[in-house]
Amino acid sequence: MNKKLRIGVKSITGCAGCQLSLYFIEDVLLELLDKIDLVAAPMIKSKNEEEYDVLFIEGSVSSQDDLDNLLKFRKQAKFLIALGACASHGCMQSMKHLMNEKEVEKDVYNKFPSDKRLKPITSVPIHKHVKVDFYIPGCPPNNEEIAQVFKWLVQGKRLKVYDKAVCHECSLKENYCLLDQGIECLGPLMNGGCKALCPDYNHPCTGCRGMLDDANLKSGKEMLKDKGFDPDMMIKRMTKYNALQFKEFEKPPEESK
């Protein structure tokens, strides 16, 4: 490869933890500096350029500013990667999809009615507005996985996201199933790739990496009922990261074309 890859990171609404995770792979980044140019990295650089071969975007679209920026970023980037749960699935900002949006806004924003920047729009992951070429899910995304993506990018390999259930990785670790211990884990419905980090420490999976493409939601609810849990609890837990995905599973959006 003769030309260095121009790589950038940009934020819209989120906690910026994803961008921080990206810098945690500093040893890999150092190794790669003869193959890549980190042209935009607002958290560690003061002078940031535009136009990217690969652009990582963290955060969800939650304001008009976000949307304007995102559309601009998409034009500037040849390859666009959604970094983290907000950009991939909407995360907490999108909890509003299961509530009355107007009421939520009234409660939160009426305190500062004069500040126009705080005017929210319906919060969605970025693929609802622009074409996304690859996803790195997770809250925050795993830095090993980010490093892997960087390696694949410079090697020109096809990127591949982990698409097996959390239960698979959890079983390979021989964990005692939380569901059998009276803990309402959502592992059977959720995408792994996290090495079952939470269940490994007896903390139930809440699905920060999104639902499986073919998650069987109906059976998942039955499962929780069988195990003596309240299936509505599942909905509440899922809204933390996947309110929109959950809603679409319940009622698939009509094909627009």
Partner: peptide, 13 residues
């Protein structure tokens, strides 16, 4: 089959 969650626990065990 309607119950299957495709979680892979059967094959892992």
């Amino acid at each position: 089959n309607d119950k299957c969650l495709s979680c892979g626990k059967c094959t892992a065990h």
